[in-house]
Design a protein around this nucleic acid. Structure first.
Lengths: 230, 230
DNA sequence: ACAGAAACGAGAGCACTGCTCTTGCAATTA
DNA sequence: TAATTGCAAGAGCAGTGCTCTCGTTTCTGT
């Protein structure tokens, strides 16, 4: 039987990990477009065909990197969001937003891989979808905690979002939030990522002189707009 | 001398236009990553090396497409923004935002080329920068017109943006706007594009059921947030 | 313990890519 | 008319993703 799962099985997962690691290095240097299977193999002292024992195609390797990146970013944000569990929701919002940007600046090519132009003909496998949700869930839970702490529901300005938002899905993450506020929650989320995409892709160059301060100001503005508790 | 600029010169610009046109078709089908010089040549009944008489490199062809796309989008938005010159700023905002989305949905791959992951090692030539500014200028001018119509300046909530925004640049587009409001202007702009990127790249799938209605709701919410005149 | 099966890496090869260089022909210029 | 320039074709180079075959090593069932 397979008590230790065999030498070979262990070597296999190690090899997969090694491939992903060197692929990540190449990705960090040259971006997703410049990532070449042959170069990964060369870097590892292997011949290119050997990699196909572990990843059936280049896209499959990229998918694995996407999956890991989503989880890496997700756990980073979850960590800061839960570390100051007792703090005000404004502070938790600020810290979470900063951690997303910190990660994005530290891994720009991976961030672009996650949120930039999708590779053509790529369909996210279901596992990836779950991983991708983690960050959004953190943002949702912050808003949820804020509203849960408040006696009366903050009455979301009367927008009926049922015609265009997936209320059941959103209710799972934000049960204490008035559905009328779901729109603002989504907007805050898309704003953060849109801003980071614009910053990383160079579209803010002409108008923003200090990206750090600008981002903090944006985050604060959004916190106020969401009426989070100080 | 060159009264008609010669038959050859005319043929040259026609050929350049033909190359860009067939490249745009390929781009529409396969995206920027899948655009191949050889396929463009094949499609035109040419041999690949012939294209290098007109574009020194693949990136140069892509740059030309980027330039044209910026101008195409820019003039589309300018058209609707100036067509209802007398209307309320809220209406002009709505129409302008809708025209951006309409263009993006009609040219998703070109939109991704403009605002998605940049091609690695790509540096926008100065001509492109000017073209890229056109859309942002429209948004700025709407906010500017709104504030210009109002007697008292709307007093931008006291945020000093001078440490992180390029006030001189922004003052050119929005001379009637209190600098303290520049931040909100930029945020509205990044929000629109961030939302469209998320929509096009599939990140809204789980939470948005009707993208058209959702976008309209977002646009309305932003108009209210900007306190545009009805 | 041993035979059969499965996994592995190497190597050759295919079709494709961007790009370069040379060669003959056509259009332009002096 | 003679020389120059612009053009398309073709061959070729280095690189890519991917497939297939072939010995070798490891695992598996009996």
């Amino acid at each position: 039987m397979t008590g230790e799962q065999g030498v070979r099985a262990a070597a296999r997962v190690a090899q997969i990990e090694a491939i992903k690691t060197t692929a990540r290095e190449l990705l960090k240097e040259k971006g997703a477009a410049g990532l070449s299977l042959r170069e990964v193999a060369r870097e590892m002292g292997l011949v290119s065909s050997a990699l196909y024992r572990y990843f059936a195609t280049r896209d499959e390797l990229l998918t694995a990197l996407i999956f890991d990146a989503y989880n890496d970013l997700g756990s980073a944000v979850e960590r800061v969001a839960t570390s100051d569990e007792g703090a005000s929701t404004t502070l938790r919002w600020r810290n979470s937003c900063q951690s997303v940007r910190t990660w994005a600046l530290a891994h720009p090519n991976e961030f672009a891989l996650l949120y930039g132009t999708p590779i053509p003909g790529y369909n996210a496998p279901t596992g990836t979808i779950a991983a991708a949700t983690r960050v959004a869930a953190v943002f949702g839970s912050i808003l949820n905690d804020d509203r849960a702490q408040k006696a009366e529901m903050a009455e979301g300005r009367g927008v009926d979002v049922r015609p265009f938002l997936s209320v059941p899905n959103l209710a799972i993450v934000m049960p204490a939030v008035d559905p009328a506020e779901y729109l603002r929650g989504i907007m805050a989320w898309t704003h953060i990522f849109g801003h980071l995409l614009f910053e990383l892709f160079g579209h803010l160059v002409g108008s923003v002189t200090d990206p750090d301060l600008a981002y903090s100001a944006v985050v604060d503005e959004l916190a106020e707009w969401l009426q989070l508790s100080e």
